[in-house]
Amino acid sequence: MNNHVILDVQNLKKYFQVGKNLTLKAVDDVSFQLHEGETLGLVGESGCGKTTCGRTCLGLYSRTDGKVLYKGQDVHLMKGAEKFAFKKEAQMIFQDPYASLNPRMTVSDIVAEGIDIHKLAANKKERDEKIFHYLNLVGLNKEHANRFVHEFSGGQRQRIGIARALAVEPKFMVLDEPISALDVSIQAQIVNLLIKLQKEMGLTYLFVAHDLSMVKHISDRVAVMYLGSMVEITTSEELYENPLHPYTKALLSAIPIPDPDVELQREQTRIKLEGDVPSPINPAPGCRFKGRCKYAKAICSEQTPQLKDMGNGHCVACHLYNQ
């Protein structure tokens, strides 16, 4: 990892109009930077806007406001050859390995689609070699190339999705909950594969997930989102050792640990969150978390807290730390 910034997200906003005078603020004023070769984990409950954020970063959604700069260029203003080149460098892996692969195409065609579009293979022989190379890389073999997607299990499908993304030699990948649809034993396989590929090819990952334990394992830095805004961002070690935001603390203490004795100890200290995530449609002003926060004060309803650096790049958006 070096200090070269590959993706710079500045005050990104993405609103959806869901009816007359109803605005769903999926991503509201989110800023972060991604360095080359690093993995940033983006975590939060469902409906907090993490997937929307990932997709907007790749230009799959148009933005409402703010900027996404990829190597200094605005992703949403790119045109023609520039955009074509960006699409080769930035790839996405989707959550649902069943819905994201075309059932009418063979595996080799799925993997080769990017190769064909970006003309990465000079002839048929090279194309085949490339397909086999990438299938091999993700732990599939030659015999799988001519099969259709329905013949594969969930874990294998996710591997096909990874092979497809890798085939265009990307630099930056958005992984949108790549493991949440898989079994525990298969999750470990895919995560190991992702880490191995990152080391070998120097990839940069934006890892979107709701499973904090897996995020801790794979990420260098972690950003916690709640209802469209970022509440905390820091290195993964720091986040787990010294969480600052009440939401992060609650989230961490809700994760079950496969150890009966540790669980019994945690029982007393566990921070329980009551209720559900409120609706992101026309949210009230102030801190989004105030309704579920036990430290909520008057100022929390009046002013939206801003991300503030507490030292060593550990940023938190909470009025508790604003004295």
Partner: peptide
């Protein structure tokens, strides 16, 4: 054993490779 090792744990610090169960 493999199932227990395949789960990354929050309370453990090490960042070694996860023990995965190969195959299906």
């Amino acid at each position: 054993c493999a199932l227990l090792e395949a789960v990354p744990r929050l309370d453990l610090k090490n960042k070694q490779e996860l023990a995965s169960i190969e195959g299906t």
